[in-house]
Structure formats: structure tokens, C-alpha cells
Design a protein around this nucleic acid. Sequence first.
DNA 1: TGTACATCAGTGAACGCGCGTTCACTGATGTAC
DNA 2: TGTACATCAGTGAACGCGCGTTCACTGATGTAC
Lengths: 214, 214
Amino acid sequence: MLSFMEQVRGRNRRGQGERLRAEIIEATMRLLDELGDDEALSLRAVARELGIAATSVYLHFDDRDTLVLAAIRQAHESLLAAAKAAGEAAAKAAGEAAGEAAAENPAATLRARALILGQWAQEHAGLYKVLHESTLHQRADMSFKEELAAGTTAAVQRCMDAGLAPAGDAALIALDLRAAVHGTVSMRVTEPNRPWPPLDEQIDRFLTKLVGLY
Amino acid sequence: MLSFMEQVRGRNRRGQGERLRAEIIEATMRLLDELGDDEALSLRAVARELGIAATSVYLHFDDRDTLVLAAIRQAHESLLAAAKAAGEAAAKAAGEAAGEAAAENPAATLRARALILGQWAQEHAGLYKVLHESTLHQRADMSFKEELAAGTTAAVQRCMDAGLAPAGDAALIALDLRAAVHGTVSMRVTEPNRPWPPLDEQIDRFLTKLVGLY
DNA sequence: TGTACATCAGTGAACGCGCGTTCACTGATGTAC
DNA sequence: TGTACATCAGTGAACGCGCGTTCACTGATGTAC
């Protein structure tokens, strides 16, 4: 007996088995985003979400932890892509506005990076928590996350090189900035119902005061 | 059959039933600190930790959630007391060093507050996570936490009033400071095995750059 | 062109486990008469 | 001073549930001869 909501789901064609893998990761990300906690996610809930047998997950993932890690990895990838795209778009726009031919604008790039991080976090609150606050960090290697930090350090360094911010230890300053942005985003995401002041203004204060952006 | 580790635990005397209540909260805090995640804590684990029947917990708490909330409340109380004590001790020490008779020193107070928060978080990493990042925030009223924020705002305001920092919106500046400190502490607590730069120096940068402490 | 067979994509029943919670109970201790 | 009784502090068995994981299986589809 099927409820009217349920799709009758045919099996994938031969050679298309990898499709289910992608769907499982997608569903896992969706559930993690709702739950905001990797411990609370169950493999059976993922299977239920897709209308497949719980055992089918094992066709593509060794166990629950592997699945969760794959989903987190993909979330990181998505955040990374968003940060990169926003940074590039901002640099280009700022360059054109100034009449320069798509010149680099490191300050606009850094600002866009910080803002998109805040925006992504608010759109994917649960995923943000899992990606940055989960206790999984203790049990699994999540060093792939360093790429995100490296991007911010590089952006800060470019600001210093261009004379848009006082020279200094770019890695240290970038860490200060990341800490501040993560802190406010974390608070907003954990307690979304408090009356928070505007995020973009706060991020601008961080850029001005911590990085020294003119 | 008892293992040699287990104490034979007699029941409390008449009128001393509340003792168990305190022990249960203590054990819950201990476990939450180890787990760093309220979802992962089980009432049965608490009972096991104390060598009592799982049902005995119900003598003092309506259900699992009530118990967890009571433990979190107590953790907050402990953090609050630590912040207050550190702030007062610092103000007194700084006042005496300057030859003043236990005069107020708002800058030293604010600095001590921020430092003790970082220290407490490192000593009670799991509890810090539960207190500030738990998804319980969505399900339960945790407005008692406002007291901690209010203390920081007041300390910032006193710095401004004493001319030790540029006048401004104390609540907003205090939020910036709390966000930055929470951010770095959160990162350190989530990924304790990374090579972090010294926390106190970073907090001093936040005080100088965000609050404008001279 | 037909057929046996291997492979692929996925299923369903079953396992043992720990969980939160309910219920009826036990047994020591203080109190009223 | 003795005894019946109420109260207090806590227990043990049992419930139904959802979980991760294992196992033997099914049935469609492509391929070799």
C-alpha cells in the first residue's frame, strides 16, 4: 500500500548505479541541514527520505560514518565554490565600476568572501553547524577544510600587497577575521530567534577594525 | 557481583533525598563535558555513572530534557560566577598596583572577563559546546544566557564611561567582542589538535581593535 | 536468431542493542498514640 | 516503652521503538556463443 505522496521508484538502468549514490548524498545533506547535528542523523532516515531499502545505502557507503563524511565533504565543496564565485564576481564588478578592465580588487574580493560565508550559513544553518561545530571533528580527518581558511589568508595577503590594508601577518589577521565572522554566524545560527543587528554591517566592522581595510 | 571499582551505595538518610539530585546534575555535567553534544547524552548513562537505577532519575527530573536543561543551567551559573570573580579580582589587583585603594579598573575587568571565558571554555570544552552551540537552543528556552551577555555589555560601557575606550554603542561593540571571542574559542574547542596561536594575544587584539581599548 | 549465463541494482527479514519511560514494589526510618 | 503506620528514597522488570548492520535473495538487463 502506497500513500499518494510516494513515487513508485524504478531501479536505475545498468551502468547508472552511481545515480543513487548522488541522491543518497543529497538526501543526507538535506537531513543534516534540518537536524544541525551529525549524531542525530540516521541511515534509515536517509533511506526513508528516498523511498529505498536501508540496506541499499550499503551499496555505496561502508557505514553510517562514511556516508556522513561524504555529505559534509560535499557541503564544504559547495561553500568553497560559493566563496570563490562571489570573490571573483565582486572583483570584476568593482574593477569595471572603476573603469579598470576587470582588474583585481582584493578588498572587494575579501569583503564578498566574508559576506557570502555569512549568507551561506544562514541559508544552510544546519549544514553550517555540522561542518564547523560537529563533534565528528574529533573522530574523523576533516583537514580538507583547510582550503577554506587558505582562501581567506590569500585574500588578506592580496589586500596587504595592494596597500589596501596595513602590512602584517596575513595568516594571523585572517584567523582573527575568520574567528569573528564564524563567531557571529555561529551565534545567529544557534539562536536564530534573537534580534540580531545587521550581519553585513557587523562584517564591515570586522573588515575595518581587524584587517584595517581602509 | 560487583566489580572492585563499584562502591556499595547506601540510600540517603531521610530528608537528604535532594543530595541525589545534586549528584545527578554533577554526573550529567561530567558526561556532557565528555560528549560535547546534548543529543548524545542518555539518562541511562547518567544512572550508570552513579551506580543507581535509571528510574531513580525520575525522582528528581520529569524527563531527559529537563535533566539536560538543569545541567546546562548549572554550567551557565558556573561560567557566570567565574567571569564575575575574575573581573573583580583583576580590577582589585590593577587598582592596588596603581596605588589606588581597590579602585575600579574597567579595562582590566573587561580583559579578565574575556580571558576567563576562553580559559573556562578550554577547561570545559564539551560543556562549552553544549552551552553555546547545542541544538537544544531551538527546543528550549535558554534566555538565562542573556545574563552573560549583559555582563560584557556593562563592562564595555564602563570602559567607555571611564574614557578608556572611544564612546559608542556599548551593546553593539560588546556583541562584536563576544562574537570574536566565541568564534575563536569555538574553533579551538571543535578542533583542539590544530596548531592555534596563543589565545590571550588574540583576545588582546580583539580588545584593542574591536573595543578600542588603549 | 535463440538461449544460457554473468552481472548489476536493489530488496526484505532478521539480529542484537540501548534507549526513555511506566509500573508495581521494597525496605528503612521517623512519628503518633 | 512498645507498636502500628505513614513517608521517604530508591529498585527491578518490562514495554515498545528505532537504530546499524548482516545475510541470503530477486529480477531485470546485457553479453557470449
